[in-house]
Design a protein around this nucleic acid. Sequence first.
DNA 1: CAGAATCCGACATGATACTG
DNA 2: CAGTATCATGTCGGATTCTG
Lengths: 124, 124
Amino acid sequence: MVEVTALTKEEAEHCPVRSVLTRVTGKWQMLILLALEGDELRFGALKRKIGDVTQRMLTENLRTLERDGHLTRTVHAGPPLAVSYALTPQGLSLVGVLKPLVFWAAEHFDAIDASRVKVDAAKA
Amino acid sequence: MVEVTALTKEEAEHCPVRSVLTRVTGKWQMLILLALEGDELRFGALKRKIGDVTQRMLTENLRTLERDGHLTRTVHAGPPLAVSYALTPQGLSLVGVLKPLVFWAAEHFDAIDASRVKVDAAKA
DNA sequence: CAGAATCCGACATGATACTG
DNA sequence: CAGTATCATGTCGGATTCTG
C-alpha cells in the first residue's frame, strides 16, 4: 500500500508521491500531456492546440514536465527557430493513468452538475 | 473521444471536464477521498488521518466534495456534536481512477527524481 | 467537537512588452 | 518562432481567534 496521508508536516513536505502529483495535477500540466499524446508538437502548435494558455504558462509548465522526465525538448536549428516537444515513454505511461480520470470526469459530469444544482438549491 | 483542449477561452472556462478535474486535483481533495476509502470518518479523525491539514482547508474542501456528490456529510445529534463523512458510490468510483495515479507516482518516483537531479546538474 | 470568521503572506496565473 | 522579463492580480492556504 502507498501511504500519502497520516504524515507529519515534515514528512508530508517531502512525500515523494505528493511531489510527483502536485506537478501533474496543476491547471496546465495534464492538458499539455494529453495534447502531446500521439504527436510531437512544436511550441506554437502546442499552444494553439491547448487554446487558452499564455506563452509564459506553457513555457513554465513544459520546463517542469521536462525536468521530471515526462517529455523531451528538441531544438531544430533555424532559422526559423523550431523547438518540438514529445512525450517520453515515461510520459506516455503517465498519460495512460491520466486518461481514465479524464474519461471518468466526462462520464460523470451530468451527475455531478445535478448534485451541484441540488445542493445549491437546498441552501438557497 | 473527450476533448479538453483546442477550446476557445470561453469554452475552456465552462468545460465540464475541466470543472470536474479542477475540483479533485487540488492539494487536499485527493487526500481526503483516499482517506475516506473504506471507512466513514468523523471530522477530527479525518483531520488526524491526513495529518497536515488545517481545519479551514479541510472544511472548505469537504464542502466542495459534498457539493459535487463525492461524499456525504452526516450530523449525529450531540452533545458532544459529531459529524461524519463517507464516500458516496460516485466518490468511491472516483477513488477507483485516482488510485492508479497515486500508484503510478509511487512506482515512478525514483526515475523522476533521478531525472530532476540529472537536469539540474546539466544546467548548473 | 466541529466548525465560522478574519487577517495576511506566498504563489500561481494573466497581460504586456521585448529579444535572438 | 520561441521564448524572456516585468508588472499586476487573484486565489490558495496557514495561523489565529471565536462559537453553538
